[in-house]
Design a protein around this nucleic acid. Structure first.
Lengths: 159, 159
DNA sequence: TCTGAAAATGGACCTTT
DNA sequence: AAAGGTCCATTTTCAGA
């Protein structure tokens, strides 16, 4: 599952997670590698799927999506096809940024973004109230996005 | 707070959220704009802060961080400096990808990533058990990352 | 690691609204 | 003025020696 990475790879991954616009010659200077070596490594990391994709991260409030809401959902039945159907519904909804199928007190945790409470209300109607397999759900409204991102730690080893 | 955007901007934002590696001439072809116009718009969007940053998204399991865990935390006191201290602690922790300070049954929601349960256990010790202001916390272990990302919907208007 | 070709970015300048 | 288009210089990427 995991891929063999040396410390050059790890440093590069740390850099491009933070900022993917740094040119390869600058990356090379930072990690002490030639531009060409950086180029080859980044390509390899992308081919191996270590780097899943490159994307732009928007400031939600600037595109008028100021609300972030965490919703926990408990289902009626864990029957596999019912769960799969819910996963598909949640995955398709553009306002749902993240959906985790979890073990514990709840079955799903959703991270949602919304223009306002009315839109969230509307979403709860579509996603939860009109779904017979939703037993109950709980809403936690974010007052502050203390930290937001998808960064994974890359621990340097002392190989 | 929100910025004025026309449908060209919105289409570009949708594209670069999905894939920031598409060259500007290709983006131009997709949205019917010249390369130079795309270039100008993307720069402007970045300057205005609509585009916060560009970054690489890693596959957590490939860098040996296969676990995603959602943790909800209730605090003892909501005294402002105690809360601020916790926010700083959470923001600094590399395994914490996201931290929301929320209203509702809990005070914080954390999205964490970990190499294994032992590491998570260790983290709970550092973050929660050794913090006097943590009243209780609950752990939800993700069995499936149904959807993960930071994408914000960009609704086209019919201006 | 170096060199050079190809591609992509980004500025200059002109035109339209 | 504000924004689009074309053209050209510069920068960056990326393959071959």
């Amino acid at each position: 599952m995991a891929v063999n990475l040396d410390n050059f790879d790890r440093k590069l991954l740390a850099e491009v997670q933070r900022d993917a616009q740094v040119p390869q010659n600058e990356l090379g200077a930072r990690v002490h590698l030639s531009t060409a070596a950086v180029n080859r490594r980044l390509r390899r990391l992308a081919e191996e799927g270590v780097i899943d994709r490159y994307c732009a991260v928007l400031a939600p409030e600037k595109v008028d999506y100021p609300l972030t809401i965490v919703t926990t959902v408990e289902v009626e039945s864990e029957q596999i096809d019912l769960i799969d159907a819910m996963k598909r519904t949640f995955a398709q909804c553009p306002q749902i940024q993240q959906c985790y199928y979890v073990a514990g007190e709840w079955d799903f945790v959703l991270i949602l973004t919304a223009r306002n409470m009315e839109q969230y209300n509307e979403l709860t109607r579509e996603l939860f109230f009109s779904n017979n397999n939703v037993k109950r759900f709980k809403t936690l409204v974010s007052m502050s996005r203390v930290k937001a991102g998808m960064s994974v730690p890359v621990d340097l080893s002392d190989e």
